[in-house]
C-alpha cells in the first residue's frame, strides 16, 4: 500500500520531450531555416515577422491566456516600447541595446498602474477598457510630437551596429527575433511553473475560490500583467529598430497589434506554451503572402481575409489548434 502511494505522482511512462528540450529543438530548427534561406530577403522577412509575432503573442498569452484577462489593448505596451527605444535613439543617440530593458521596465510599471484599478472589471468591460487605453496612448503619441515626431513619426537613421540592433544583413534580424521568441517561451515556461504562475491559473478559474485558499488575486494578476507588458514592450523596441520607421498608426492600430496578438494566441491555443507560436506560424506567413498577392488587386483585400479568420476563429477554434490537437490525441490538459 505504502509503495503504491509514494510512487503515484510520477510522470506517466511515456516518451515526452520536456518543454525546455522542445524549445531548444525549435530554436535549432528555426536557426536552420534562417541559414537555409539566408540569401532570400523575402523569406527572411517572413521569418523575422513570424518570430516577432510569436514572441508578442506569447507575451500576451501570459496575462490573456494563462491569466484569462482578455486584453485587446496590448498594442499600448508594444508602441510604448517601440517609441521609448526609438525616440531615445533618435533624440539622444541612446544605444538601443541598453534601452531595451529600461523600456520593458517602464512598460511593466505603467501596466500595473493602469491595470490595478481596471482588473476589477468583468471580462468584456476589461477588454473594452484596454481598447480605450490603447486609443489614449495613440492620441498621446500624436500629441507629444517633440518626443515622438507626432503623426509623421520617427525615421530612425540607418547606422548598422550590433549595439544599435541595426543590421545590414537580414539574417541577423531573423536571428534576433528568434532570440526574442525563445526568450518569451522560456519566460512563460519558468513563470507558469513557479508558484505565482500556478496561482494565476487558479485566479483565471475562480477568483473567489482562489482567495479562499490564500491567493492574493490582484497581486497575482498584476505580476502577470507586468511580465506580459515588459515582454511586449521589449518586442516593440526590437520592432522599432527593424522597421526603423514608426508612427502612431503602425504601432497603435488595434487590428494590427493589440487585437492581433490575441488573435494569434487564440488561434494557436491560449493558455498553452506553444500555442502562440503555432498561431504565428499559421497566420503570419499566410498574411504576408496574401498582402503581397492581393493588394495588387484592390486595397484592403488582405484585411478582409483577416477579419474573416477572426470570425471563424471565434466561432470554431475556441481552444485553438493546440487545444484541438490535444482533444484529438487525448493528452493531459
Amino acid at each position: 500500500m505504502t509503495t503504491q502511494v509514494l510512487s503515484k505522482p510520477q510522470q506517466k511512462a511515456r516518451l515526452r520531450l520536456g518543454p525546455i528540450a522542445l524549445i531548444v529543438l525549435l530554436a535549432l530548427i528555426s536557426a536552420g531555416l534562417i541559414a537555409l534561406w539566408s540569401g532570400d530577403p523575402y523569406a527572411l522577412n517572413i521569418l523575422t515577422y513570424t518570430f516577432l509575432f510569436a514572441g508578442l503573442a506569447g507575451a500576451w498569452n501570459i496575462i490573456g491566456g494563462y491569466g484569462g484577462q482578455f486584453s485587446l489593448g496590448h498594442g499600448a505596451f508594444f508602441g510604448l516600447g517601440a517609441y521609448i527605444v526609438g525616440s531615445l535613439y533618435f533624440n539622444q543617440q541612446a544605444t538601443p541595446l541598453l534601452t531595451l530593458l529600461p523600456a520593458a521596465a517602464v512598460a511593466a510599471v505603467i501596466s500595473v498602474l493602469i491595470s490595478w484599478p481596471t482588473f476589477r472589471l468583468k471580462g468584456p468591460f476589461f477588454a473594452i477598457a484596454t481598447m480605450a487605453i490603447n486609443e489614449v496612448f495613440y492620441a498621446l503619441a500624436n500629441y507629444f510630437d517633440d518626443l515622438t515626431g507626432g503623426p509623421a513619426g520617427l525615421a530612425i537613421p540607418f547606422k548598422p551596429a550590433w549595439e544599435n540592433l541595426i543590421f545590414v544583413d537580414r539574417s541577423s534580424y531573423a536571428l534576433l527575433m528568434l532570440g526574442y521568441m525563445v526568450l518569451v517561451l522560456l519566460a512563460t515556461h519558468i513563470f507558469t511553473n513557479c508558484r505565482t504562475g500556478h496561482y494565476l491559473v487558479a485566479v483565471r478559474e475562480d477568483e473567489e475560490a482562489a482567495a479562499a485558499i490564500g491567493i492574493n488575486v490582484t497581486w497575482t494578476k498584476c505580476v502577470a500583467m507586468a511580465l506580459s507588458a515588459a515582454l511586449t514592450a521589449f518586442g516593440g523596441g526590437l520592432f522599432a529598430m527593424y522597421i526603423r520607421m514608426i508612427d502612431p498608426p503602425t504601432v497603435f492600430t488595434l487590428a494590427e497589434t493589440g487585437v492581433k496578438f490575441a488573435l494569434l494566441a487564440l488561434i494557436g491555443g491560449a493558455g498553452t506554451l506553444f500555442g502562440p507560436m503555432v498561431g504565428a506560424v499559421a497566420i503570419v506567413p499566410l498574411e504576408t503572402y496574401l498582402r503581397g498577392y492581393l493588394s495588387d488587386y484592390r486595397p484592403g483585400m488582405t484585411l478582409i481575409v483577416v477579419g474573416a479568420v477572426m470570425i471563424l476563429a471565434a466561432l470554431f477554434l475556441k481552444h485553438g489548434i493546440v487545444g484541438a490537437l490535444r482533444k484529438h490525441f487525448g493528452s493531459q490538459p
Partner: peptide, 30 residues
Amino acid sequence: PHRRARLGMGRTFQIAKPFLGLTALENATL
C-alpha cells in the same frame, strides 16, 4: 479573504467550487 486564509482559516463553500478546468491533483496543489 486571502489574508484570513493565510492566517490559518480554511473553508469550503455551500455549492462546491473546485477549479473545474483543472485536475483534482492540480486543485489540491494550489
